[in-house]
């Protein structure tokens, strides 16, 4: 029985390898006429369900839309969480992951990444005047984060004396903070700013903390498909050069948006 299932698994692995060697993802996408993107569905302003249209919208959806338009295909959105995004990409249920995913070297073993499309840094979200300013203040406190995220591992390393409680999504962690069940939420600053902006009284909360970790976001791509990766990288740079990036950024993070965040960063551009 064991032998049989192992042989089956091996056979499946071989057919997959063969399949991957012959057809690139780019051809597949063009042939099917759809780009399937894995995005967050509860992460304003990166990806969330819009109240009026009930559709998933956000900064990362617009980035994927740009890529789909360039390929001349339709965009299909699939919600993922921090824990499901890598398995979904490796098993092929999505073609690209745009889900606030940090480009980490250890993740390179499973998937590939595009160039950085969003700069982020891990911070803390706390109640204003609650006495927590830095990571050091977290000793003996409860900190909320999301399952499968880098923030979860970083904070445990930066402050071994805190208790990390991992939820399925960041908004759940923020809800726990609002109800006083955790003392801080830690993840990337723009996500924290987005969470803060969803509250009815955003001024009650503040994003704080000293340096914990850099969290540059990259688009997750299937392993070892360089044609596809080249296309995505070139498109991102073109997006920046044409000013389209700035337009999308302004829509979600501009001064008039719900979650203003100054753009102090420049994309890596290859000549």
């Amino acid at each position: 029985m064991k032998k049989l299932s192992f042989a089956l698994a091996l056979l499946a692995a071989c057919t997959m390898l063969a399949g991957a060697a012959f057809a690139g993802k780019l051809d597949d996408i063009k042939k099917n006429g759809v780009l399937v993107a894995g995005v967050k569905d509860s992460q304003p302003p990166f990806g969330y369900v819009d109240e009026q249209s009930k559709q998933i919208v956000g900064f990362e959806i617009d980035v994927c839309k740009y890529l789909a338009d360039k390929l001349g295909v339709k965009l299909e959105i699939k919600p993922v969480t921090s824990a499901t995004r890598i398995p979904m990409l490796t098993q092929g249920s999505v073609d690209i992951v745009a889900a606030t995913m940090t480009h980490k070297i250890e993740r390179e073993a499973e998937i590939d990444f595009s160039i950085t499309y969003f700069p982020a840094e891990q911070k803390l979200l706390v109640k204003k005047g609650g006495g927590i300013k830095t990571v050091a203040d977290l000793a003996g406190k409860k900190v909320g984060s999301a399952k499968g995220s880098t923030s979860e591992k970083n904070i445990q390393a930066a402050q071994p004396k805190c208790q990390v409680i991992s939820y399925d999504t960041y908004p759940m962690a923020f809800l726990a903070l609002k109800q006083g069940k955790v003392d801080a939420v830690t993840t990337d600053a723009p996500i924290l700013a987005g969470l803060k902006a969803t509250d009815e009284k955003p001024e009650m909360w503040e994003v704080t903390g000293d340096f914990i970790a850099d969290e540059p976001y990259g688009l997750g791509l299937p392993e070892n498909d360089s044609d596809y990766r080249d296309f995505v990288n070139a498109s991102l740079m073109e997006m920046w050069r044409s000013g389209e990036y700035a337009k999308i950024y302004d829509k979600w993070f501009g001064p008039k948006s719900k979650c203003p965040l100054e753009l102090k960063w420049k994309m890596e551009l290859w000549p």
Binding site: Y48, M172, T198
Partner: peptide, 10 residues
């Protein structure tokens, strides 16, 4: 429900 709860949180 969790989606709406995550968006509204109140």
């Amino acid at each position: 429900a969790t989606q709406v709860n995550n968006r509204t949180m109140n």
